[in-house]
């Protein structure tokens, strides 16, 4: 203990308290690590219906979060969570996950569906989902190496009309059957 000039007694134990009171605003890592319970450590998901965020494009993450927040993109839990973050925080999280190393999920895929999906991809999807879905283009997300179940849920949301599409996407996607969409999901999941 020491006695300050103004007469207050200060204990060494207060160092922790005073340091805490000088805390910096949440960093990108602080914000993003909280997501990892569901999306995996550093965004590498181990759960088939939860997308991996590691290595996803920043633009796509930010757009998804904003869509969840506004309700433009349908969700169960994500809308409620996205509403908890400011634009700057969402930007920081997008940046954080985009810089993490992508991890290929271990999953069983159907080779026949992969082949069928590849043909559909080349005909209908490749213009925006470039490099077999490995590269982002504009605001198109990286869809390669993703969990099949996650992609299937997204396809369902598009097919049912729950998730809205831009006109150019709708034009390509509307003619495709549910089986076609499932095949495309198999194809993207298979890309290393």
């Amino acid at each position: 203990m020491k006695i300050r000039k103004d007469g207050w007694v200060v204990a060494a134990g207060l160092m922790a308290l005073s340091a805490a009171s000088l805390a910096a605003p949440p960093t990108a890592a602080m914000l993003s690590n909280a997501c990892a319970g569901c999306h995996g450590t550093l965004g590498a998901s181990a759960g088939p219906s939860m997308p991996s965020l590691a290595g996803q494009s920043k633009v796509s993450i930010v757009e998804s979060m904003n869509g969840f927040k506004s309700g433009a993109r349908p969700s169960t839990i994500m809308g409620r969570l996205a509403k908890g973050y400011s634009d700057a925080e969402i930007d920081a999280m997008g940046e954080f996950f985009s810089k993490q190393k992508p991890v290929m999920p271990v999953q069983t895929l159907d080779p026949a569906k992969i082949a069928k999906g590849q043909a559909i991809h080349e005909k209908s999807c490749a213009r925006c989902h470039v490099e077999d879905g490995k590269e982002p283009k504009d605001n198109s997300p990286i869809v390669a190496s993703q969990w099949l179940k996650y992609l299937q849920v997204q396809m369902d949301d598009y097919a049912s009309g729950k998730r809205k599409m831009l006109d150019n996407k709708a034009e390509k996607m509307k003619p495709l059957s549910r089986d076609d969409l499932d095949a495309v999901a198999h194809f993207y999941s298979s890309i290393k």
Binding site: A36, G37, T41, G47, S49, M50, T76, R80, G84
Partner: peptide, 27 residues
């Protein structure tokens, strides 16, 4: 103005719950 509970009972949330467990135990 964030957070809260599901609007209704949901089959999709049961599917997400499975992945919740898988991810958190893996972490």
């Amino acid at each position: 103005n964030s957070g809260g509970v599901s609007p209704d009972l949901s089959e999709l949330e049961a599917i997400y719950a499975e992945s919740w467990l898988k991810n958190i135990l893996t972490e």
